[in-house]
Amino acid sequence: MSRIKNMPFSPRFVGLLLMLGLLSGCGALNRGYEALLVLEDLSAGSEESWLEQRTSEPSREKVNYAVKGRDYVADIYHPEIPRRGAMVLVHGFTEEGRRDPRLVEFAMTLSRVGFTLVVPELEGLKDFSISTREAQAIADAVRYTTNEIEATESETALAAISFAVGPALIAAMQEDTAGRVSFVVAVGGYYDLTDMLRYVTTGEDRGGAALELPPPESRARWAMLLSQLHWLEDEEDQALLENIARRKLEDRSAAVEAEVRRLGPQGRPLYNLVTNEDPDNVNALLAKLPSRLRQEFKALDLSRRDLDELQAQLILIHGPNDRVIPISHSRRLEDALPEGQAHLYEAAGLEHVDVSPGLLDGWELWRATVHVLKLGEQ
């Protein structure tokens, strides 16, 4: 989840946005002003924001629900006046799940401007084991929301961050959900998993022609390792690789040679893949992974899917200097859809999902927020 707190909005930035809003029509003025309040609220930290002064605090309700025999738990955030539709908000990798304080703050902000938020608990994202199971769980959250939450008019929006973008889009393209999702907000998402893995491990992005990229975040390879361990059948290899990954996440110089020497025929290919630094070796190393893991990897790869099945509008927000998933992925997602269906906002202050914008960077985030608010009214 994004650490969006302590965002520096200068008086010049605030004044510029208000001036531009005054030059717009009445509807655009209100929407632009609300977008400004949203961003200021997210940056307020422990201090009271303008939005908090002007709105009542939404209520939060815990619900248990089942879809086709599958049981789930979620939080529903009810605004005082539900003047926008429902939104399923997918949390990212966090052991605190739907109760991650940053996610709670984000959900409260969106609910203050009229969205009814449904935030499901996704066990895979809590233990870093992302898979197509998460796509199914997100699709079930869409089914529940459109069937049970009053005032959604059988449609809901969907928002996801980083690695959760793939499962969210897959969920939005299923036969009985495609017509239920009005729009998707995707922050720092991926398109081609092989290219993403190549960048994370070697620094090369073959989908980003002519892009000058910063070096990848050193911790990303170990997060990727954690996300795939659950597909290994060898429990000893699972435990060894989890220990390696967690130690490296805490200290990238940690010595793990003893654990590496004990890896068996399942764990060794996965370790070799995430520690590889030769871009030309990636495909060959992928081919050596256990078959179950390869199948899941392919199933989550958006570049292998027919995106024509997506009916929803897609709002893409991505930072040009993202060191986990390069911006080329969002650009390719936009290009893969019919003209006008996807809209990319390149926010230079967005480093993967951490935000610290200046004046011009805040402008792009403001434009994206205005777009989300507008779509929520339809």
Rank of each mutant, 00 (worst) to 15 (best):
K5P: 00
N6R: 13
P11L: 04
M19Y: 10
L23F: 14
S24C: 09
N30C: 02
R31Q: 13
G32D: 11
G32T: 07
Y33Q: 11
E34H: 05
L36M: 13
V38G: 09
V38D: 09
L42G: 15
A44M: 01
S46K: 14
S46W: 06
S49R: 02
T55N: 05
T55Y: 07
S56L: 09
K62V: 11
V67H: 10
Y77T: 05
H78R: 15
P79S: 06
I81G: 00
A86K: 05
H91Q: 14
F93Q: 10
G97Q: 07
G97R: 03
R98A: 12
R98S: 11
R99D: 15
D100F: 06
D100R: 06
R102L: 14
V104E: 12
F106N: 08
A107D: 11
L110Y: 14
S111K: 03
F115N: 02
T116A: 02
V118C: 01
P120Y: 11
P120N: 09
E121G: 06
L122G: 07
K126A: 08
K126N: 13
F128Y: 15
I130L: 14
S131M: 07
S131H: 05
R133D: 14
I138N: 04
N147S: 15
A151P: 00
T156P: 02
A157R: 08
A157G: 12
A160T: 03
A164T: 13
A164K: 04
V165G: 08
A171Q: 04
A171L: 03
A172I: 03
M173N: 08
M173K: 00
M173C: 13
Q174T: 13
Q174W: 08
D176Q: 10
G179L: 11
R180F: 02
V187I: 15
L193G: 08
M196R: 12
R198S: 13
Y199S: 04
T202N: 10
D205I: 02
L211R: 12
E212Y: 01
P214R: 07
P216N: 08
R221Y: 04
L225A: 12
L226R: 14
L229C: 07
D234I: 06
E235N: 08
E236G: 00
D237S: 10
A239N: 12
A239G: 01
I244P: 07
L249K: 11
S253M: 08
A255C: 07
E257N: 11
E259C: 03
E259G: 01
P269V: 09
Y271Q: 01
T275V: 13
N281I: 00
N283C: 00
L289R: 11
L293D: 03
L300A: 07
L302T: 09
L302N: 07
L302K: 12
R305V: 01
L307I: 01
Q311S: 12
A312K: 10
Q313G: 12
I317A: 00
I317Y: 00
H318R: 11
R332S: 12
R332G: 00
D335I: 00
P338F: 00
L344R: 08
L344H: 11
A347K: 05
E351P: 00
H352I: 08
P357E: 11
G362D: 08
W363S: 06
W366P: 02
T369I: 02
G376H: 09
